[in-house]
Amino acid sequence: MATDAALRRLLRLHRTEIAVAVDSAFPLLHALADHDVVPEDKFQETLHLKEKEGCPQAFHALLSWLLTQDSTAILDFWRVLFKDYNLERYGRLQPILDSFPKDVDLSQPRKGRKPPAVPKALVPPPRLPTKRKASEEARAAAPAALTPRGTASPGSQLKAKPPKKPESSAEQQRLPLGNGIQTMSASVQRAVAMSSGDVPGARGAVEGILIQQVFESGGSKKCIQVGGEFYTPSKFEDSGSGKNKARSSSGPKPLVRAKGAQGAAPGGGEARLGQQGSVPAPLALPSDPQLHQKNEDECAVCRDGGELICCDGCPRAFHLACLSPPLREIPSGTWRCSSCLQATVQEVQPRAEEPRPQEPPVETPLPPGLRSAGEEVRGPPGEPLAGMDTTLVYKHLPAPPSAAPLPGLDSSALHPLLCVGPEGQQNLAPGARCGVCGDGTDVLRCTHCAAAFHWRCHFPAGTSRPGTGLRCRSCSGDVTPAPVEGVLAPSPARLAPGPAKDDTASHEPALH
């Protein structure tokens, strides 16, 4: 009773807030009518008042009428009001819900409408889902798969039609296919003929059939049928067999079959498995989609049935006599038709004709302190090069084509190399640097090759510096006499390219 009084008091307290929050009759008014909170006449009256005075006034009048009803109607109103779709449509209802007392429970059932309790003993237990329907569909599909699609060729003596089998029958139906081979029951999904010589313990000319048996419980189990008994694959494991010639990621696949039913060829011909030897223990289905393919039931050349050999690369099948050149017997292992072999060759040939990528240039590290003349020119003028003790990398590039010797140069053309002071002394051009340390401070000019250098860098042994005729380390061993002091540049003949010694390969005349 306390809860009923509290709900009535809360409705009177929030009546105006609810009326202002509800700006549309749908969905709240319609939901109240659906849950029998508002009768039909009051529903029509509220809609009429909404058209006349507006939605807030109409709902305020409806809530005032609701306060005169019993506690069950008020409880049902609060339940409908706080439904998710009403809270989404009328956003101003959320503060009312947040301020609702926590001790007021809106989930209690309506009085007088409590459903009768059902004894637990009368409640049926839930049924577990079964796979009976899938099993029945598999039974119905198996006879259809064994139905012949056409008439065999005159040369083929193997013609068999499976008798119709009602689904209610649980007995196995067997077809006489000759040579002791028996087909599987209607619940078998796949059958492959297997030679009895590969099964340990088999006697006589009995041949087993590799099947997948579907049981009534819905589970499946792969086994071997020899005669009327089934054997699990673990009985046929043979770890010492060295003649297993397995197909790549293979499961067994029928390579020879008669049109209309699988079996042995007439005249004692023995149908073979995809792999010879003992049956392997793992009978998992292969991951290669080509091995799941269903080959055609007629020859791809003459479009006739009979004894066919199936290609492992495509769905086509052929007569042995229709092949070019014809085959006398079934080859062992994987067999592919000429079209598949030709496609494989065409895929391999473009790969062989692809040009080989060019090898990157060989990189040879230079000892610290040495650099090529090109690196000396590329440096920024007026700045010493940083990191001189790091190992430089010199790339061996292809030799350029031989060019004509340089033409003779006048001494005026070499004027930018040297600057003559007032006393006739050779001065260095701006930006000249030593080729060893890279520093341009207090550098000297070689009178023979006009290269800038430090005496301490080229002659670290402490050799005394002569007063005139300074030469760098590369030119100090040259027998050519030094030019007379005061000459602007060496003779043009000295600039012609010539053979250089091994220790002077990195010091070429550089223009500054």
Rank of each mutant, 00 (worst) to 15 (best):
residue 235 K to H: 03
residue 206 V to W: 03
residue 225 Q to S: 10
residue 141 A to V: 10
residue 22 V to R: 05
residue 113 R to H: 11
residue 252 P to I: 09
residue 266 P to E: 04
residue 118 V to W: 12
residue 167 E to W: 15
residue 113 R to A: 09
residue 68 T to R: 03
residue 89 R to V: 00
residue 60 H to N: 02
residue 251 G to S: 07
residue 190 R to Q: 13
residue 25 A to K: 04
residue 148 P to W: 02
residue 45 E to M: 00
residue 101 P to G: 03
residue 58 A to N: 00
residue 240 G to M: 11
residue 3 T to E: 01
residue 112 G to F: 10
residue 121 A to R: 09
residue 160 A to Q: 01
residue 50 K to F: 01
residue 87 L to I: 15
residue 214 V to F: 10
residue 28 L to W: 00
residue 99 S to K: 15
residue 56 P to V: 07
residue 232 T to M: 13
residue 262 Q to P: 12
residue 160 A to K: 00
residue 164 K to C: 02
residue 221 K to Y: 02
residue 117 A to K: 04
residue 220 S to A: 03
residue 150 G to H: 13
residue 14 H to G: 03
residue 133 K to P: 04
residue 71 S to N: 03
residue 221 K to V: 06
residue 103 D to S: 15
residue 251 G to H: 10
residue 139 R to Q: 14
residue 222 K to P: 08
residue 196 S to G: 09
residue 255 L to P: 10
residue 182 Q to K: 15
residue 21 A to Y: 02
residue 263 G to R: 07
residue 153 S to L: 12
residue 19 A to L: 02
residue 45 E to H: 00
residue 208 G to K: 08
residue 116 P to L: 11
residue 120 K to W: 14
residue 245 K to M: 02
residue 260 G to K: 06
residue 191 A to N: 02
residue 100 F to Y: 01
residue 9 R to E: 01
residue 158 L to A: 08
residue 22 V to W: 01
residue 251 G to K: 11
residue 148 P to Q: 12
residue 98 D to H: 14
residue 18 I to A: 00
residue 263 G to I: 00
residue 155 G to T: 06
residue 74 I to H: 05
residue 37 V to F: 02
residue 268 G to N: 10
residue 166 P to L: 09
residue 264 A to Q: 05
residue 166 P to I: 13
residue 37 V to W: 00
residue 129 P to G: 09
residue 87 L to T: 01
residue 273 L to P: 11
residue 105 D to H: 06
residue 120 K to M: 14
residue 34 D to A: 01
residue 39 P to Y: 00
residue 249 S to G: 13
residue 108 Q to V: 07
residue 178 G to L: 15
residue 82 F to Y: 04
residue 111 K to C: 14
residue 203 R to F: 05
residue 87 L to W: 00
residue 30 H to W: 00
residue 70 D to N: 10
residue 14 H to F: 05
residue 181 I to D: 03
residue 8 R to D: 04
residue 172 Q to G: 05
residue 63 L to Q: 00
residue 39 P to H: 03
residue 134 A to W: 02
residue 221 K to S: 04
residue 112 G to A: 15
residue 149 R to G: 06
residue 156 S to A: 09
residue 229 E to K: 05
residue 171 E to R: 13
residue 195 S to T: 14
residue 21 A to H: 03
residue 141 A to G: 13
residue 59 F to T: 02
residue 145 A to N: 03
residue 200 P to M: 15
residue 107 S to I: 10
residue 106 L to N: 03
residue 253 K to R: 07
residue 64 S to C: 00
residue 231 Y to L: 07
residue 86 N to K: 01
residue 83 K to N: 02
residue 117 A to N: 07
residue 144 A to C: 10
residue 29 L to S: 01
residue 181 I to Y: 12
residue 84 D to I: 00
residue 249 S to T: 03
residue 73 A to R: 13
residue 129 P to S: 06
residue 244 N to Q: 13
residue 94 Q to W: 15
residue 251 G to P: 01
residue 165 K to Q: 05
residue 67 L to Q: 00
residue 139 R to S: 08
residue 124 P to M: 15
residue 239 S to C: 12
residue 77 F to T: 02
residue 246 A to H: 14
residue 169 S to I: 13
residue 187 S to I: 05
residue 75 L to N: 10
residue 3 T to N: 07
residue 175 L to H: 14
residue 201 G to K: 07
residue 172 Q to V: 12
residue 254 P to N: 01
residue 63 L to M: 00
residue 269 G to M: 05
residue 238 D to H: 14
residue 264 A to K: 06
residue 28 L to N: 00
residue 205 A to R: 03
residue 132 R to E: 02
residue 73 A to Y: 05
residue 233 P to T: 11
residue 266 P to G: 08
residue 208 G to F: 01
residue 257 R to L: 08
residue 192 V to N: 03
residue 206 V to M: 04
residue 99 S to P: 15
residue 265 A to G: 09
residue 224 I to W: 11
residue 238 D to G: 10
residue 212 Q to T: 04
residue 164 K to M: 15
residue 60 H to F: 11
residue 111 K to R: 07
residue 11 L to K: 04
residue 132 R to D: 03
residue 163 P to S: 14
residue 86 N to H: 00
residue 171 E to Y: 14
residue 79 R to L: 02
residue 273 L to S: 09
residue 57 Q to I: 07
residue 13 L to D: 00
residue 245 K to P: 11
residue 188 V to A: 05
residue 163 P to Q: 11
residue 54 G to M: 06
residue 172 Q to E: 03
